[in-house]
């Protein structure tokens, strides 16, 4: 069993990074093409689940020492914070701001507060999925 695990674990690590990269891509694509924080977050967590399958829970939690509840809270705070920023400008809540830029290589891009909001969504989704899986997994 142990030797097999090593192969599995190594491949998993590779796949994990691929998944993470892909999920980040999906996340950023969201505003213009299908994707977004939600799907991105789910993909990331499935990557972590893969790690969980290959290693045991303890190893993963030392590899990724993350308190997922806090992650959820921070995600929510980011999302709320983005939306609430508009309160300080006395415009309706959730008013976003964006600007188009033309960058070398990447062409026309935009910088958008909505992306920040989506990042909050991303964090919450990862946090939630991992919390659920972790708590069920820890329970014997």
């Amino acid at each position: 069993m142990k030797t097999n695990d090593v192969i599995l674990q190594t491949t998993t690590k590779v796949i994990f990074f691929i998944i993470i990269l892909f999920s980040i891509h999906i996340f950023f694509a969201g505003h213009y093409a299908p994707g977004g924080g939600f799907v991105g977050g789910l993909l990331t967590s499935s990557g972590i689940v893969l790690l969980l399958l290959a290693f045991d829970l303890k190893t993963v939690s030392t590899m990724l020492p993350i308190n997922y509840t806090v992650m959820v809270a921070i995600g929510l705070l980011i999302a709320l914070g983005t939306a609430a920023g508009s309160i300080f400008f006395n415009v309706p809540f959730f008013t976003h701001a964006f600007e188009y830029f033309t960058l070398p290589l990447l062409g026309k891009q935009s910088l958008h507060t909505a992306a920040l909001f989506d990042a909050g969504v991303y964090l919450v989704v990862v946090g939630v999925t991992m919390t659920i899986i972790q708590s069920i997994g820890e329970d014997e």
């Binding site: 509840t69 709320l80 609430a84």
Partner: peptide, 12 residues
Amino acid sequence: LLPFFFAMILLL
């Protein structure tokens, strides 16, 4: 938003 915000804080 107020209870919402403080609820998040409490999660920490």
